[in-house]
Design a binder for these strands. Structure first.
Lengths: 224, 224
DNA sequence: TCAAAAGTGTTGTGTGTACACCCATGT
DNA sequence: ACATGGGTGTACACACAACACTTTTGA
């Protein structure tokens, strides 16, 4: 099977999460070419020779979403010889969290469509991309126990209920409102803003923002 | 600089930890060839086209130590274009834990020497291998908080003091004896053996063993 | 008999969890 | 006036951290 193959190819695939319409979603592209033509896949591409891995992932991200300056983390490198038909393609997978407000999706000639798909209700995927998404969800949940990365999915200003919703979407379970707020207000670095939501639905809610990402600094864990 | 380079090369490097002579050590080889001839390095090698990543790491491990069936985990993939002079070499780094009893080290024509080096007192290393070792130590400490992987470094039968010593060597700090034993006996899955050490030094100590590695099963964390 | 390592419990403090009612606003 | 989501406090259980003396053996 590998007779005619001379070299490894190295790609990066980026699992891009967002929250939109009250759903935790990932960005998928529909493949324009074989293999797996017309199948949905995680956006990805070849790593350039003079480009480091993080930069390659950021480039993919920017190509699809025009977004920069976001949370990005190397996930795992997948290299099963059978993961890609008729070639040896090792992929260094990343995952990213972005805010879904004002994002313009775009795609190039390698795909015919690009759109968000709820992570708990995915279509059939190309390659081992199902496994990659499952792994990234697992990782994101682990991260969430220690660091408030859910901020990355929210707009600048948010209510505590919105923050809690994002946690619940990621963890896939309900959290206690009072315990959550206690933890968030003491454990995270939240700025209480002098503003309230203006007639969102019924009673106005306090808005908060956060200063900087305290990723490695805080190590108390949050919410089981 | 990358004018004449056409392809990526993909290697795996394995940080192999053990405890010997009361020291936490890693296995290093002295390079026989350029680049970095005569410099110490982590054992590694090219990934074969038909080999998956874990198998490649296991192969490297077996080549140097003749050991199989050990704890092995993918660490991180390092791919800075400048990490390797005059070539683009992406390395998928692993770390492994092995028992140092009855290990025969060996090496091939790519190295002139192989030996254990205390992780807290390393020589000058080739490439970005210092960074890789630091990263693997960090990862091992994180793992240790949740899973009793230190078992992997100990012989079949061990005393609680030996177990504690291994924790202290990895974490780089002293632990409280009573708290450690309480935690170990309630939190880990230890088998109390009907044996004692025979006149090791003074008073005989109870020997213990463990059943299987309960890596992902137990999620109470151990010892800060 | 002494030196050296083995072994053993209690208490305080902090963190996670469970749980139910009133409040402010728009309609 | 009422429906809707916003907001608040206490009590219990459990995990971690600090801390000092007695026991068993070999020399």
């Amino acid at each position: 099977m590998f007779n005619e193959i001379k070299t490894h190819e190295v790609t990066t695939d980026v699992v891009i999460f967002t929250i939109q319409q009250n759903k935790l979603s990932v960005l998928l592209v529909k493949r324009a070419n074989e293999p797996f033509k017309d199948r949905w896949a995680i956006p990805g591409g070849f790593i350039r020779l003079s480009e480091n891995l993080d930069d390659a992932a950021l480039r993919i991200l920017k190509e699809k979403t025009n977004v920069e300056n976001i949370y990005l983390e190397q996930l795992y490198t997948f290299g099963d010889p059978l993961r890609y038909p008729n070639a040896r393609v090792i992929t260094c997978a990343y995952f990213a969290l972005i805010r879904s407000d004002d994002i313009e999706l775009s795609f190039d000639q390698t795909s015919t469509e690009v759109s968000w798909h709820e992570v708990y209700n995915l279509p059939k995927l190309a390659f081992d991309h199902k496994e990659i998404i499952e792994y990234s969800l697992k990782r994101m949940r682990e991260r969430l126990e220690f660091c408030p990365i859910a901020f990355q999915l929210l707009p600048e200003k948010f209510t505590l209920t919105e923050l809690q919703k994002s946690y619940e979407l990621i963890l896939g379970k309900k959290l206690d409102k009072r315990n959550f707020r206690k933890k968030a207000l003491t454990g995270f670095i939240l700025k209480e803003l002098p503003e309230m939501t203006k007639s969102g639905s019924k009673r106005p809610a306090r808005l908060y923002s956060f200063d900087k990402i305290t990723l490695d600094s805080k190590r108390g864990h949050f919410f089981s």
